[in-house]
Amino acid sequence: MSRRVLVTGAGGGLGAALVAGFRERGDRVLATDLAGAAGEVDRTLDVTSAEDWAAARAWVEDEWGGLDVLVNNAGIAGGGRLDHTTMEEWQRLTDVNLFGVVRGTAEFTPVFKHQRSGHVVNIASLAGLVHPAGMAAYNSVKAGVVALTETTGHELAGWGVRATVVCPSYFRTGLVDHLVGSDEAVGAIFRRLVADSPVGPEEIAAATLAGIDEGADVVLPDEAGRQAYSFKLSDRPAYDAVMRRQAANLARLTDNSP
């Protein structure tokens, strides 16, 4: 049965791959992104704008009579050491990566409750589950998305609404071309990890769609992410030791060793 799907951040990368995957399955998709996004989108939607979200909901209700899947994919990349990340950078990452998801979920919750069905799919990051040094702001907002998704699934279960969070590790994405952060040393490391990843957006999208089909609450779409999170859960002392070595290596690489 064809589903009605709204995807944010659909102008390229993972968002565009998700749109293509849903459409290949015969779903109707409203692809949204900022004005001037690189790829083809159906509607402009700035996830930091309450007015844009209200307009998207009005369109969905007028044209489709409801929504089956909301995919909160839009986000920005960012990183930096605690003493190098400005409050403005924290605020920007929070407004887009966390509050953007909050706005969309809050806007469509009445729709889902009214129809007594729906699925919220939030694209977070492995950074929401595994927290390396040099990424405090990004880790924090993505952990918030993980918490919001779990809460949504519990709170709306009585209305037949599901919630899934997707937590990919590093994969090739154009987001790093517009990295938020004045910590250039960490930014360079982050860009290299993304560029060297063997995984692209198409693989992440395919694993995400498979996780949705399976009814998973948490989707870890790549092997590196699954191994890292399993390590944290199975041997926390060893995980902490590895994270502290990573922090020490970061300090040496950035000429700021304690």
Score class of each variant (00 low, 15 high):
Gly100Glu: 01
Ala157Ile: 14
Pro258His: 11
Pro201Glu: 11
Ala106Val: 02
Leu14Trp: 01
Val218Asp: 07
Phe99Pro: 00
Pro237Lys: 12
Asp255Glu: 15
Val47Arg: 01
Leu175Val: 13
Asp83Phe: 14
Arg28Asn: 07
Leu70Arg: 12
Arg43Cys: 14
Ile212Gly: 00
Thr149Leu: 04
Ala216Met: 08
Asp217Val: 09
Ser230Gln: 15
Asn72Ser: 04
Gly153Asn: 14
Glu61Trp: 05
Arg81Phe: 10
Glu223Asp: 15
Arg245Phe: 01
Gly13Phe: 15
Met87Lys: 06
His84Phe: 11
Thr109Gln: 09
Leu70Asn: 09
Leu14Lys: 03
Gly36Ala: 13
Ile123Asn: 04
Glu150Phe: 04
Ala16Leu: 06
Ser230Arg: 15
Ser234Thr: 13
Gly153Thr: 08
Leu220Arg: 10
Val5Tyr: 00
Gly174Val: 11
Val161Ile: 15
Asn139Arg: 08
Gln227Val: 07
Ala35Thr: 15
Val141Ile: 14
Lys232Asn: 13
Gly104Met: 01
Ala205Thr: 07
Ala207His: 05
Arg236Pro: 11
Val145Gln: 05
Ala124His: 05
Leu30Glu: 01
Ser49Asp: 05
Glu40Asn: 07
Gly200Gln: 14
Arg191Lys: 13
Trp64Asp: 04
Ala147Arg: 11
Ala216Trp: 10
Ala247Trp: 03
His84Glu: 15
Glu107Val: 08
Pro201Cys: 05
Arg252Phe: 07
Pro201Asn: 08
Val218Arg: 04
Gly215Lys: 06
Gly160Glu: 04
Thr149Trp: 11
Glu61Val: 08
Arg43Trp: 12
Val161His: 02
Gly144Glu: 08
Ala247Val: 00
Ala35Gly: 12
Arg192Gln: 14
Arg92Asp: 03
Gly225Thr: 08
Asp62Ser: 07
Ala228Tyr: 14
Arg162Phe: 00
Leu98Met: 10
Val176Ile: 11
Ala136Val: 08
Arg162Ala: 02
His154Gly: 14
Glu150Tyr: 09
Asp46Glu: 12
Val199Tyr: 04
Val186Tyr: 00
Gly225Trp: 06
Arg28His: 05
Thr48Lys: 11
Ser234Ile: 03
Glu51Cys: 04
Ser169Gly: 12
Leu220Val: 13
Thr48Tyr: 11
Glu89Gln: 10
Ala55Phe: 13
His114Pro: 03
His131Ile: 00
Val120Met: 00
Val199His: 05
Thr254Tyr: 11
Ala133His: 06
Gly153Ile: 08
Arg192Lys: 14
Ala55Pro: 14
Arg236Phe: 03
Ala38Glu: 03
Leu70Lys: 13
Leu233Trp: 14
Tyr239Val: 06
Val102Cys: 08
Gln227Lys: 13
Ala56Arg: 07
Asp83Tyr: 15
Ala106Phe: 02
Asp42Pro: 01
Trp90Phe: 00
Thr152Trp: 14
Pro110Ile: 12
Thr152Cys: 15
Glu24Tyr: 03
Val176Glu: 01
Ala195His: 02
